[in-house]
């Protein structure tokens, strides 16, 4: 098993005709994702890489029975696109888009929740269930099927983590990039709950960073349940307060979001916080054991 996506995932791509959209459509098809359609208003009836293009999400959903959607549309149009997909009744929405205005994100979050959909992102690399399905922009060749779940606020650092585990012969169930924006649809805690309920995930690697309180809330959740072991990593320990470190959400403000507090919260919850990605790999190997022959 896995969480959120698997072989039954039928994916639509918003902005399929754009440069990014077309490139990653090709990559997702190569991964084996069941990509059933794309949307580009005004280009309905066309095809991209053999995938049918529709004018609206509602039409695409009706015609294909899609149950997941990923968006590459730019920030200014991103909020509206997510609302269109939620209105069409798609349960899983993934927004890769960077630079979505925060005021739009607050409204979108409310709208998506009201429509009972789950939003991942914005400003995320998407997710991969190893050997089953990929939604988003993570590199195809890093993954190996297995039992470690990964949840992360960062893109490249997630790839590093997957690479590190795969190199050690340790596979992953699902890898989820939740996004680097200050307002995101799915939190660490949301994903931890899903992993806790997934019989195929034995351990979770959590990659946090400075900014906000999502790591602290995750630590609180971890303390409150007797679930699977979690190993954490926090980046930005040397980041100064008041400065945005690339991600819109990676900023220490108003005395909140500093690294010490996050590390402390995890340690109190019994979660080891490692200093480098190879150390995380080593800790994971110690807990789950390395498969024979690896």
């Amino acid at each position: 098993m896995s969480i959120l996506i698997d072989k039954n995932t039928k994916l639509l791509v918003q902005g399929i005709t754009g440069r990014e959209g077309a490139f990653h459509t090709e990559q997702m098809l190569a991964f084996g994702t069941n990509l059933v359609g794309g949307i580009r208003p005004g280009k309905g009836g066309a095809e991209v890489l053999g995938v049918p293009v529709f004018n609206t999400v509602a039409e695409a959903t009706r015609e294909t029975g899609a149950n997941a959607w990923v968006s590459f549309v730019p920030g200014p149009a991103s909020g509206d696109a997510i609302m269109e997909a939620a209105a069409a009744g798609i349960p899983l929405l993934v927004a890769i888009t960077e630079r979505t205005p925060v005021h739009d994100e607050t409204l979108v979050y409310r709208y998506v929740s009201e429509h009972g959909a789950r939003l991942i992102g914005p400003n995320c690399p998407g997710l991969v269930s190893s050997g089953k399905s990929k939604v988003g922009i993570m590199p195809n060749n890093l993954f190996k099927e297995g039992h470690v779940g990964i949840v992360s606020r960062s893109g490249t650092l997630t790839y590093e983590m997957v690479n590190e585990l795969t190199r050690r012969g340790i596979g992953q169930s699902t890898t989820v990039g939740i996004g680097g924006d200050p307002v995101i649809g799915t939190t660490f805690t949301d994903v931890l709950k899903l992993f806790d309920a997934d019989p195929d995930t034995r351990l979770v690697v959590l990659i946090g960073e400075i900014g906000g309180t999502d790591e602290e809330l995750a630590a609180e959740y971890i303390s409150s349940r007797s679930g699977k072991p979690v190993v954490a990593f926090i980046s930005g320990r040397t980041a100064p307060p008041g400065k945005r470190m690339g991600h819109a959400g990676a900023i220490i403000t108003g005395g909140q979001g500093g690294p010490e507090h996050k590390v402390q919260a995890f340690e109190q919850a019994g979660v080891p916080v490692m200093n480098t990605i190879p150390e995380v790999g080593e800790k994971v190997a110690e807990i789950v054991g390395v498969p024979a022959g690896a």
Binding site: S152, R153, S154, G155, T156, L157, T158, E160, G180, I207, E209, I210, S235, G236, R237, T238, A239, P240, K243, R244, M245, G246, H247, A250, N275, T276, I277
Partner: peptide, 26 residues
């Protein structure tokens, strides 16, 4: 995306998380 800090070792990385980690390791 660039933020000036006080030290003497420059950092270039592809990705915000990776750049932060590089700072931390230095």
């Amino acid at each position: 995306p660039y933020v000036k800090l006080d030290g003497n070792i420059g950092v270039i990385a592809n990705g915000a998380g990776l750049a932060m980690m590089t700072m931390d390791v230095i």
